[in-house]
Amino acid sequence: MNTRIFPFCLSFLLSLCLPALLQAQQVTIEYAAGYGIYKMEDMKGLFKSSISSIPIRNIRVTDLFPGYITHHVKAGVTWKALHHAGLSVDYMNTAAHAAVSDYSASYASTLRMKGVRLGAFYRFALPHTAKNLLSPYLQLSTGAVFNNGKATESLTFTDSKEDSSSSSESLEGVNFFVEPAFGIKIRVLPILSLHLNAGYEFDLTQQFRYQGQSAIIGPDWSGLRVQAGVMVCLF
């Protein structure tokens, strides 16, 4: 399903952008740093159940897929001062971690989730504020999240005579997302603007594959997104 929808959406957006591109007035490059909160319900359940079977007392889950810093890079074009569209690449990561350590040894189990979003965006500025210093806009993004999960487990003894051990497993998959957002553009210079926006990502699909086989669970990156960045108009 997601493999058919994603190309359709991307093609739709690009088709919307195409007239704009033909009428583009500026090419923009934008970088924003943000913060994202992630649902990750399935992954949380998976992690907790794996920890419960460890025959070591006092293990604590110190991190359970909390929200973390995100990075966003956009490249687009603007036209008629109202429209702004383009492609975006976003990076987000989080992790779940359970561990215990004492004088004799340390045990840790970590499940790191990384997602690289590749999509398109469209911004529509409110008409009577488009040329103001502060210009609010609505934004819609869509695309794919390329998931990468890595589960590691390690047991390290303080006494080097004992053999330590570690293991890791990797999982991959692709989600399809849609993210509506609301933002404000602050024109600092004719070629330099600041952006602030907040949105919510909806992962329409969650997928993981382990050793080529589809897993029954997948990372759900759905959640609040806030970001602030700098946009530079190139020409």
Partner: peptide, 10 residues
Amino acid sequence: SCEYPVHDHF
């Protein structure tokens, strides 16, 4: 910021 820093439990 590329990798979430996990916490220890000692």
